[in-house]
């Protein structure tokens, strides 16, 4: 029997997804090109660089920041980001006294238009169950140790509202342009498991 070291067997979930996709296509319920177009969009065009642009704009433009914190969906749409899983956005601000971190204990709710698709750890049972009970311990595992006096706010995204963290602007970045600032902003900082560093 021929075997190849380069081909691993498909996992059960991969087989199930392939079977479902074939059925949907065979029955004419979905066009293969539509599936490919959506995958291409979420793999290559939508991702945390969008959110980074929102954060950088808020750092350089106080009026934009005020709009972003008051009316998240509309302010994010000003920069051209909107759509599925970002219909009702709330942006929460990290400060010297308050640190925000996001989770969806029920499933994997996540703001697609600004952050793209969620990382695997965000969807994992250990992250989802532990961050609500011992947020400081989980953050420490991400390399973030917070002062005891800091209030940690864990946002459990149980409804259709989608959250995004506005991280603190790092000190010593006064001379940087908006684009240079955006380049510093990471996905994890917008989930709230790390800070932005210079």
């Amino acid at each position: 029997m021929a075997s190849s070291a380069h081909t691993r067997p498909l996992s059960d979930i991969e087989i199930r997804v392939k079977a479902l996709e074939s059925l949907l296509v065979e029955k004419g319920l979905v066009d293969q090109a539509a599936v490919d177009a959506l995958i291409d969009k979420y793999e290559h065009k939508v991702g945390p660089r969008n959110g980074a642009k929102v954060v950088a704009r808020a750092w350089v433009d106080p009026e934009y920041k005020a709009r972003l914190l008051a009316h998240g969906t509309e302010a994010i749409e000003e920069l051209g980001f909107s759509g599925m899983q970002g219909e009702d956005m709330v942006v929460v601000e990290n400060t010297a006294d308050v640190h925000n971190v996001l989770v969806c204990t029920l499933c994997s709710c996540y703001p697609w238009p600004t952050l793209g698709l969620p990382p695997v750890w965000y969807k994992s049972a250990p992250y989802r169950s532990r961050v609500v009970i011992e947020p400081r311990g989980v953050l420490k595992e991400f390399g973030l140790e917070l002062p005891e006096a800091t209030e940690v706010r864990v946002w459990d995204s149980t409804s259709e509202v989608r959250y995004m963290v506005l991280p603190e602007r790092p000190a010593g970045t006064e001379h940087l342009s908006e684009d240079e600032l955006a380049a510093l902003v990471t996905r994890d900082a917008m989930i709230g498991v790390t800070k932005v560093s210079k």
């Binding site: 004419g28 979905v30 066009d31 539509a34 759509g83 899983q85 970002g86 219909e87 009702d88």
Partner: peptide
């Protein structure tokens, strides 16, 4: 009825489908 690529991308580019009423 099948969803074609243009419709799929159009829907994902739009405001999506808020459950706010």
């Amino acid at each position: 009825m099948s969803i074609n690529a243009a419709q799929a991308i159009g829907a994902s580019n739009s405001r999506g489908g808020s459950t706010k009423l």
